[in-house]
Design a protein around this nucleic acid. Structure first.
Lengths: 242, 242
DNA sequence: CAGTGGTCTAGACCACGTG
DNA sequence: ACGTGGTCTAGACCACTGC
């Protein structure tokens, strides 16, 4: 027996089962929205008790990779535009209602990654990326200037598309089977530069919220680097601390 | 049997046990840092199985109200300055290291709550509050202008203190038995006004991150309203989205 | 009605920290 | 060696969903 096997055996059973289940989602063996086998099936298949299978499945539910519904079954999570916005778009208006942004035509452009992009996305020298610049609208007025970059390798052929949809993460899941599961946002305040002021139709120097996001998938590797310059006015970003 | 009893009986046992345990922490029957009875003791006391007691205690651990340590026992969470900063102070420097702020002498002032304060803290007309204004330092230079308000009723005698400590939440827990368990932060970008510019030793109009926090305790009522105006420079606020 | 997830029990053994 | 939390089992019953 090698050390890897020993390490494998020393980890809790439910953790091992959990990883195997994640692998099925990652590999696409279980598709988004699909009903997965019930607790007893999974228990039988992995040779564990129903309680242990349950603990593994519940861990996936906590991580929002599956959705459990009493009486119906357990389903692989399926991103929809509404779902993606709810989870990953944390801007609210003065009455604390979540803002639903629109976006203008967004055209992807392929290029070789620059140094900053390689650092943010963890790419090797020479790797290609896809860049997208777009303006998001609120009440038909521009309020966010966004620049998005993702590794070309993860989204083959995407650079050739004439246009991208308003919400990307559900599109990524549907088209490439790539699931965004978490994101880190680094937030600062900046003054609008000339170009941004023009795009957002505001005065140069207006204070903007800069949201610098790295999105991660099932394997802990960056899927996207996104910088959003937000002209909030009476709106705000909401962070919940626990 | 009345409807309240029926509702009580229809809720899962572990949820009922969980609430009773929370009440012991809230009431101060179990003090911060104290070792609580083990799973079998709690199971026996409430007339449930060890597994059910475990589920109740684990829920408290998930909520960060207790801390479990294998081989040692389960302890009521005890806020320390380091712990409070780690959980509730999400500013990081350019190398992604958490910033540890200092603060200048902070003097509390008692007053009758104004309309805005009553709205933010959910207070009745005529209620008294305690106000604190302070400047936080980074590398001995001012970088945050903070204004804090809390209900006088929760912190009797606090307005008479000559000075408050650098971290308040551990002080609240130690002195008043009041535990901060979560906070909502509403974040915007603003331009520094004359007074703030003077305090932070920057130019008027400099973009600042405005963090507007409401902190909550064990009962779902606001404990504090805090507005922080942050001159970040090369630092950033970090929000983790899951 | 059958099938699913949700709760609950009683008991066993393991891993860890302390004396 | 002892007591703690952590894992695992086998089985029971409940609550909800859809046919």
């Amino acid at each position: 027996m090698n050390s890897a096997d020993e390490a494998e055996e020393s980890r809790p059973l439910y953790a091992q089962v959990r990883e195997q289940l994640i692998e099925r989602i990652r590999s696409g063996a279980w598709k988004p929205g699909q009903l997965i086998p019930n607790e007893f099936e999974i228990a039988r298949e992995f040779g564990v008790s129903q309680g242990t299978a349950r603990k593994a499945i519940s861990a996936l539910a906590d991580e929002q990779l599956v959705h459990r519904r009493q009486g119906r079954g357990t389903f692989v999570v399926q991103h929809t535009p509404a779902h993606v916005l709810f989870r990953f778009f944390q801007l609210f208006d003065e009455s604390r209602t979540q803002i639903i942004p629109d976006s203008r035509k967004t055209v992807p452009v392929g290029a070789v990654a620059n140094e900053r992009e390689r650092a943010e996305l963890g790419l090797d020298k020479g790797a290609r990326v896809i860049r997208v610049a777009r303006v998001r609208l609120r009440k038909d007025k521009p309020f966010i200037a966004e620049s998005i970059v993702f590794p070309d390798a993860l989204f083959p052929g995407l650079a050739e598309l004439p246009e991208l949809p308003n919400t990307l993460y559900d599109f990524f899941q549907k088209t490439y089977g790539v699931l965004v599961v978490r994101a880190d946002e680094r937030i600062t305040a900046v003054a609008a530069d000339t170009e941004t002021a023009r795009v957002l139709e505001i005065d140069e120097g207006t204070p903007l919220l800069r949201v610098d996001r790295i999105a991660f998938g099932l394997v802990d590797r960056p899927l996207e680097w996104r910088v959003s310059l937000c002209h909030l006015q009476d709106a705000h970003y909401l962070a919940r601390l626990r």
